[in-house]
Amino acid sequence: MAENVKPRVRVPREVAAGETITIKTLISHKMESGQRKDGDGNVIPRSIINRFTCTFNGETVIDVQMEPAISTNPFFEFDAVVPESGAFEFTWYDDDGDVYTETKEIAVS
């Protein structure tokens, strides 16, 4: 699944110190549930992103354990506090061992 996996993340570039921001993330992934069968009746093996994390300067904002009931092209929205200038790091963990990351810098004014 490593090809065509492309995160899409919205983080403002600038905030006031200690301000709360809303973060939205989307990533392209089929999230094959393991419940479906192919045309020959064989089970299509599960292949999902099983964990999503967001950290800021190394400290955790959110850490989500994901199951096959999460829809194709997973979406998350959540709120974070920004105590200082730094970088958000977003990480998606694929069943197949691949890890997709995205970094967004943010400046405190």
Partner: peptide, 26 residues
């Protein structure tokens, strides 16, 4: 659902709210 688990949100110290949104299969 065939498997009841959907997701577990764990909140860290920088979560501004213990809240989250996602999209799920039913």
């Amino acid at each position: 659902n065939p498997e009841p688990g959907v997701a577990t949100f764990n909140f860290g110290p920088l979560a501004a709210a213990q809240a989250g949104s996602t999209r799920i299969r039913l």
